[in-house]
Simulated scan of single mutants.
Amino acid sequence: MTAGAANRIGSDAAPQRVRVGLIGAGIGASRTPRMHVEEGRALGLDYVYDLIDTDRMRPPVPSIAELLGKARADGFAGVNITFPYKRAALSAVDEVAPSAASVGATNTVVLRDGRSIAHNTDYSGFAEGFRRGIGAHPRETVLLLGAGGAGGAVAHALLDNGVGLLLVHDTNPAATEALIAAIDARLGRGRAQAVRDLRVACAAAAGIVNATPVGMAKLPGTPIDMALVEPRHWVADIVYFPLETRFLAEARARGCHGIDGSGMAVFQAVKAFELFTGITPDAARMRATFDRSNPDSGA
């Protein structure tokens, strides 16, 4: 359904009610709800977006399967999924769409007709933000920090957008090996390598991408020793609260080109909104909402 059709429907009948949410830990600063709600209202929908923050729940915290079951019972049209549930949620749904199967994680679960279907809009979200932000900077070899749920989406997006060799590092070696195996299965061997020595990896890489949660408001710090980051590097971060992470700020202070997490945040939300509602949203309007919610903007 087009946005214009939604507006016409809204003018002739009571607003369609859409209830969705975000499941994750420590998500109080998320800007996703505001993007969804304001776009829903602009399209004439009665749009509700709940935060389901497991950090605020009394123990024992429900499993992701239980949280999804409750959302379905409560009439949700779907939920976004974030850290630390992006991989675990795949085993708690009825169906896994190709977008989630290819990267081994989900960030968007549609609840419809009594079924739960896992999708991944992180891939398309990061890819769009990366294409807009990278410019002419070299990308033959890139170091990816983090092989978890978001890291899988980012890895495939990088390799599909000009990166020749992806060096992958994670504090969990099993996660690294699983991601490389998935890349080998889809693209053939030789496109990704596990790395243990970050000094050697940084020396070989043109760019460094943080796909770990380090840098979030609840996990401050940097995902790498910043002494390894040189002015010749470009850096990218998927964290967007805060938008200017310590990793980005210190890299930019060294003269690095930086890509913040806003592109991924906005464009994953655009696609998720469409999956939840069947309506194509206005991406520019959602971006403007995101920008207004920046704490530095005074909004």
Rank of each mutant, 00 (worst) to 15 (best):
P223T: 06
A185C: 04
A136R: 14
H169L: 00
H137G: 04
D184E: 14
L166Y: 10
T245N: 07
A265Y: 10
K271P: 00
E244T: 05
G148T: 11
L158G: 01
A203G: 11
T222Y: 01
A182F: 09
V200T: 14
G152M: 07
R186W: 02
A227T: 14
V154K: 01
L158F: 03
H257D: 02
L228W: 12
L167H: 08
A136Y: 09
V168K: 02
P220V: 13
G263A: 10
F247D: 05
G258P: 00
P223E: 06
K218S: 11
I224M: 03
G255I: 06
G164D: 08
R189E: 15
N172A: 12
R246L: 15
V214Y: 04
V154A: 01
A227P: 09
M264N: 06
H233G: 01
V195G: 04
G162I: 07
W234M: 02
L145C: 02
G207E: 02
D260Y: 11
A182P: 05
I180S: 03
D225L: 10
V214A: 08
L145H: 03
G261Q: 06
N172H: 10
A178P: 12
R189Y: 03
L166V: 13
L179G: 07
Y240F: 14
I183R: 10
T141D: 03
G258I: 13
N210S: 07
K271F: 04
T222N: 04
G149L: 15
I134V: 14
M226W: 06
G258T: 15
H233N: 04
L219H: 09
S262D: 08
P213Q: 05
R199E: 15
